[in-house]
Design a protein around this nucleic acid. Sequence first.
DNA 1: CACAGGATCGTT
DNA 2: ACGATCCTGTGT
Length: 199
Amino acid sequence: MPRAGTLIPASFYLRPVAEVARDLLGRHLALGPVVLRITEVEAYGGPADTASHARAGRTPRNAPMWEPGGRAYVYFCYGMHHMLNLVTGPAGRAEAVLIRACEPVAGLEAIEARRGMPARPAQLAGPGKVAQALGVDLAYTGHLLYEPGGLELRTGAPPEGILCGPRVGIDFAAPEDRARPWRFAAAGTAWVSQRKPLG
DNA sequence: CACAGGATCGTT
DNA sequence: ACGATCCTGTGT
């Protein structure tokens, strides 16, 4: 019984991206046998955010970002990693939240088989690891998260507290965008990035 | 059609 | 600190 809690409705996503990002902490991502509790995220803005894929305008890759919130935006990075984002806001805002780290709730066997190693805390910190654990790839870009079946966002235990800081891996962005504290992590869990801790 | 680079990860 | 590895966007 991997499913628990309730499916989160489309209206959840229709708010400013940083607000949705904070609210995503503690909620569950479910796909097949695997359920993950979200512990770390980053918010990415529309065209004005030079760290965001939306900075170059609409392209075939980022097309789901420009659609109404509540769907996945998945892209392939560095030739080997899939990155899972949840699109937020009304159509045209092109905002999304990158899922950076999770804590396993169900499907440990499937996770370890996919990752080829024990699912210790540090092993699910990082967006590439999250997508691999869930079994998400490019086929899921554009997928609606508020419809039953397939990849779903569901309710879960809220975090004890929220830590925030600057986003990771965006050295190419403008200084004001690099400084933006749009990385959020749940307090009180080991299932977050170890190398660049928040707090 | 060719090319440079990337919201990373695991090992050295 | 570096290499893996390929999709994507841009330019010719």
